[in-house]
């Protein structure tokens, strides 16, 4: 892989990550959110694969394949099935309107770039320049968690945060150790499965998947 191709691939992947994250804030349709998540997972896999090829680590390429299988295919598929079963295709109880959501996402992206300046300064390579994108993903994921009320949207926000953490990890450390990364991936799968069961139960109990119904649980 040549230097310029590597740089362009990394730029494309990070651009896709940012774009899908910001679109998550904008779109209200849960089906669209799931598709965006699949694209984001694929972009992350592309990023990991590019780093693996550039640095010649075979196991990173393997991780890229696993990441694509899990984050690009399996998790979005599980979510899509949940949505199909529950029949809720729109997030209509968001706390902020799309415009303010986009403005907040822009503010958070600015904050992420400001915070990660010292990290970027450490290394002149294209990978380091993509670190703020990972941080943006974490913050935007948090924003999704905070503003959406449907259980499915919560899972999506959580996965965006996880993608952000993985991005930063791959870009700064050249990839976390394989065992740790696989462990984290397994955790994420388990969490999503548990959330899926929980949302199914929630729906059985309340007939809806709105987290506001959980308010009664406080003491």
């Amino acid at each position: 892989m040549t230097e310029s191709l590597f740089a362009q691939t990394v730029a494309t992947a990070t651009g896709l990550l940012m774009l899908t994250a910001v679109l998550q804030v904008w779109r209200r349709s849960t089906d669209a959110s799931t598709r965006l998540l699949a694209v984001q997972g694929a972009a992350l896999a592309l990023l990991v694969g590019a780093i693996g090829l550039a640095e010649g680590h075979a196991e990173l390429v393997a991780v890229a394949v696993v990441v694509f299988a899990l984050k690009g295919v399996l998790l979005p598929w599980v979510l899509a099935r949940t949505i199909a079963r529950s029949g809720i295709h729109r997030e209509d109880s968001s706390a902020v309107n799309p415009v303010s959501g986009l403005l907040a996402a822009a503010g958070l992206a600015t904050l992420a770039y400001a915070v990660s300046r010292p990290l970027v300064a450490l290394d002149a390579g294209p990978a380091a320049h993509a670190v703020p994108a990972g941080l943006t993903l974490v913050l935007v994921g948090f924003l999704v968690l905070l503003t959406r009320h449907r259980a499915v949207s919560q899972v999506i926000g959580f996965l965006v945060i996880d993608n952000g953490i993985a991005t930063v990890a791959f870009l700064t450390a050249g990839g976390v150790p394989l065992v740790v990364e696989l462990g984290v991936l397994l955790d994420v799968v388990l969490v999503v499965l548990i959330l899926r069961i929980l949302s199914a139960r929630l729906e059985l109990a309340h007939g809806e998947l709105d987290l506001h119904d959980l308010r009664e649980l406080h003491d």
Binding site: L146, L211, L214
Partner: peptide
């Protein structure tokens, strides 16, 4: 602490 998950988040 009013029990709202979103507040805690």
């Amino acid at each position: 602490q009013d029990g709202s998950v979103h507040r805690y988040l």
